[in-house]
Design a protein around this nucleic acid. Structure first.
Lengths: 214, 214
DNA sequence: TATTATAGTAAACGGTCGTTCACTTGTCAA
DNA sequence: TTGACAAGTGAACGACCGTTTACTATAATA
């Protein structure tokens, strides 16, 4: 039965996300599923194997989402009404989708909290946390914004600071939304932040015309 | 010897901040200090007592800092060159001071990481994390900004979104600065963020004059 | 100087940890 | 029908957990 292995993984993840890897016993995982701990070893070599499978799963999901969403350079695309707003719209949509992913998807939400708890244990977990939730997204957005500033889509500004100003609220609202009663409000505030940011940092029309004339 | 008790507290905190409370054994704390675990029980009733003492210590430090820094309404003060920039300057200074506190102070830095690891264990820790590092500072700044918008020091905008835009980079850079090699850069980026924010959101001179004329 | 309190050690306690193993089922192919 | 195999039980293993206890040395106090 393959969904036993799957339910072990999800149950373990849920507990790891609340208490941390070390604090969760093999008995506790088994007990949560109404079986004895001996049975777990028919599906996973040991406790660490469960953890590693969770991490591997995240890598896999991330790869799938990368293929689906963020083409490194978007190829051909039906050109909407305003050609210079296309990138901005895309980023806004993608950002909201990412937020919903990290807050509402069962796996991603628990994985993010687990990663938060494990980030100081060893260098590998620290690096994974960075690449998923702090420096990674920051660097990614910095590249995009640099491109958009060059293209004249965004106003002249340090892309590094733009990325910080744009992404930091995303990151903070992730933490805020860990409280279930604050999740809805967090999404609203994020959406307001995105529109505020885009409005404040989109290049003025005059400037666009200047650039277009060159 | 009272500094034995103190060194136990600091050593335990350092380990709790890396591995989490449950994952740190009493033997490990004692071993780090070159003594046997039995000796710890001459200074603390049990393991939880060490943890509780750490939390209590944070409350104490926070109370001291509250008295020292943030008077709820600043009383009399030598009035500098520009009366409407005073609050902005004060906030900028206080923000940097808070950042250095959470990143460079041995106790506060470790306590923040420990709190990060314990935030999902129970409601009390979650509430403490919120009040220290997320919703707490946000609400505090929201109040200040609302006041400043009313006074005409800041441009007309939702104080809630202003607080988010101002504090979120602070919060993200705290996490970034957990990597020692990124700490210096994080401070620089924070300072740029603060000046950028103040410049972007300070009320225009014309507007100030309008208000002053009323 | 005798006494008492303090800070520490070493061993032991019961309990839980992760893991293994012998054993029992149920299922399905030969 | 038989045999192989996958899934699960429950007991056992040694190791380590937090905590207690009996004991020792040191230093201050009477």
């Amino acid at each position: 039965m393959p969904d036993t292995k799957e339910s072990i993984l999800m149950t373990a993840l849920r507990l790891f996300a609340r208490d941390g890897y070390q604090a969760v016993s093999v008995s506790a995982i088994a007990g949560e599923l109404g079986m004895t701990k001996g049975a777990l070893y028919k599906h996973y070599r040991n406790k660490r194997d469960i953890f590693d499978s969770i991490v591997q799963r995240m890598y896999q999901i991330d790869a799938e989402r990368s293929h689906k969403y963020e083409v490194p350079e978007q190829t051909h695309d039906q050109c909407p009404e305003s050609y210079n707003d296309v990138s901005i719209e895309r980023i806004a949509d993608f950002t909201v989708a990412q937020f919903l992913f990290w807050t509402e998807d069962d796996f991603a939400s628990a994985f993010r909290r687990m990663l938060t708890l494990e980030q100081y244990r060893d260098a590998e977990m620290g690096e994974l946390y960075r690449s998923c939730l702090t420096a990674g997204p920051l660097a990614y957005l910095e590249d995009i914004f640099r491109h958009m500033v060059r293209e004249g889509t965004l106003r002249e500004a340090d892309p590094r600071q733009l990325a910080l100003a744009f992404y930091a609220p995303f990151h903070l609202l992730l933490s805020i939304s860990d409280r279930p009663e604050d999740r809805k409000d967090a999404l609203t505030r994020l959406q307001r932040h995105i529109t505020d940011f885009m409005q404040q940092n989109a290049a003025r029309k005059e400037k666009e015309n200047e650039i277009r004339q060159k």
